[in-house]
Design a protein around this nucleic acid. Structure first.
Lengths: 183, 183
DNA sequence: CTGGTCGAGTTGATATGTCAACTATACCAA
DNA sequence: TTGGTATAGTTGACATATCAACTCGACCAG
């Protein structure tokens, strides 16, 4: 085995740039915080208003849309979910009477609309959810930290967006509102 | 309806302290970042080394333990998972030959141990995972931002921990190492 | 020793998420 | 028009997460 081969071996197998203490501390704390914060907020949202985190996300987008109504593909773009996850979620919510699925004449466009019950659910859940976010997120941080976290988040998002090598990581795209069906 | 009643009504129904622009910006950016970062890293980890995010978490803890072996309850404490999630995950990994479940004589203690295959998996996956964390997390931030995020994370974690009103939000506790079975 | 409680471990039912395949429309180009 | 491609929508199989109930050893009080 030549010196050349040993160098190649080093490069391929042992030359990983591991995280130093500062980096590892940030990463581990961040991951732990993320997990626990999500779980806490989701748990209490469910307890207090009977709405899951995923229900809530759908309901929020619909309630902010005109007439509480959106095309499926727009919902997909807003949530960044895979289309089949969205489909199953909408089906379940439809079964529970929170939304309705409306297809549009002979075109293929699928619309999703809030029902009266769905609107009542989101209007009851929203103050509750905002309260939790305030308690465990906003109030835990100084105003400076809050701004700093927003900047950090957008920096990471920019990095993710600028990376093109991600075929296979699908989420609904959602251009083309192009909404001709009634109103 | 008296003025008194109207005030009460206001307090109960309309007096939610909604998020202002700064707060909403931070919260939304944070949530979006969280979702996308996790998804990206998990996706590429799976692609490059055939290990899911959850597999990885179990394997890391085991590989850092003495002899690649831990009590189930310790693993639960380390991961902060519910015990039945942990059980199912371990069962699946055991089916795939990554770990073994070892019960301890006639005592009730359950141990989980890395197999040779499991160790190979984690040793192949770790450099890959660290690379992704570096690319999309560490390198996207300045050193100051990294420290700031660590502080922010611990501040939020402290707030969560100091809140006692969370019966029902179960995760494995894990005191009492008390480990007498072989070694 | 006896009984009682506690918590680790296990189990299966159910809810949710992911994946690949498929259908049908929209759209473009020849 | 025709054909081809892209994408929205749908479906079912499978993987994973959550929940409630159960088993059984550990431990303590009497």
């Amino acid at each position: 085995m030549s010196t050349h081969m040993e160098n190649l071996y080093d490069v391929l197998v042992t030359d990983t740039k591991w995280l130093d203490d500062r980096e590892a501390r940030a990463w581990r704390a961040f991951m732990a915080m993320q997990n626990q914060l999500r779980r806490r907020i989701a748990f209490h949202l469910q307890q207090d208003s009977g709405v899951s985190e995923t229900d809530y996300e759908i309901l929020v987008h619909l309630s902010e849309a005109e007439n509480g109504r959106m095309r499926a593909v727009e919902l997909g773009a807003a949530t960044q979910w895979e289309k089949s996850r969205l489909f199953h979620q909408i089906s379940r919510m439809s079964d529970r009477g929170l939304v309705t699925k409306e297809s549009c004449g002979n075109t293929r466009k699928a619309h999703v609309a809030l029902t009266e019950k769905g609107r009542q659910m989101i209007e009851a859940a929203a103050p509750c959810h905002v309260g939790h976010v305030r308690t465990w997120f906003v109030d835990a941080l100084t105003p400076d930290q809050l701004d700093s976290l927003a900047d950090i988040s957008t920096a990471i998002l920019d990095g993710l967006a600028s990376d093109t090598a991600c075929a296979g990581l699908a989420a609904c795209a959602g251009d083309d509102p192009d909404d001709d069906c009634d109103g």
